[in-house]
Amino acid sequence: MQDTIIELGGVTKTYQQGKLDVRAVDALDLKIRAGDFAVLCGPSGSGKTTVLNMMGLLDAPTRGTVTFEGRDVSGLSAAQRATVRRDRIGFIFQAYNLIPVLTAMENAEFIMDLQGVPRPERRVRVGQILTDVGLAGLEDRRPDELSGGQQQRVAIARAIAAGPAVVLADEPTANVDSETAATILDLMETLNRERGVTFVFSSHDSLVIERAGRVVRLRDGHLESDEARS
C-alpha cells in the first residue's frame, strides 16, 4: 500500500460572490499517494484549481480537513503553511511564473535558497537537474531569453529541485504548443518513473489526461470518478 501524502476529508470550499455563497468544492474526499501521476480534470468551474490550491496549502477549506503527510494542516498559521509549501510541495503554474530578474539557474535554486541550502551545494544539485530537464547551457539565461517550453522546464526544475513530497501543476501545458506539451509531459513522466516524484495536475487537456496514471474527474465540486490506470 502506497503512503498517503495528501488527504482531503469531507472538504467543502465556499466563496462569497456578491451576496451569494458559491460552493466551489462540496464534501470532497480524496487521497494523493506517493508516486501518483494524477490529473484532476473536469469542465470549467468544476473545482480543479480550488482543490489544487487546498492541496497546496494556498487556500484553507471552509469545512473538512486537509491532512499532509499525516498531519492535519487545516489550523496552521500562514507562516507554518509557507514552511510546509517551501519544504514539501513543488508548484508548476500555467503561466510559468518564473522570477523575471533571476536566471534559469537562480530560478531553479530559489527554493533551496529559501531553505538556506549553501550556494555550492545548490549549484551542484540544480546544475544536474537543469541538465536532466534539458536546459544544459541555458543556465544563465533569464526567462525573457527562453521559449515558453524552456521556461516551463525551468519551472519544473524549480518545483523538483528541493526534493518535495509532491508537485502540484495547474494546467502545465495550457500555454505551450502540443509538441512542447508532449515533451514536458515526457519529462514529468520520466521524473515520476525514475525519481519517484509524485505529480498532481489540474487539466482539461486530453493529452495530459491520456498520459496520467490516475484520473480524478470533478463536476460541480463533487468527485465524479477516480480511475487508476496501469
Binding site: G56, A79, A82, T83, R86, F91, N97, I99, L114, R158
Partner: peptide, 13 residues
C-alpha cells in the same frame, strides 16, 4: 502576481 508566486513556493512574508 510575482510576490504571490514567491509566497506560494514558500517565501515568508
Amino acid at each position: 502576481r510575482e510576490f504571490g508566486v514567491m509566497m506560494a513556493v514558500g517565501m515568508p512574508p
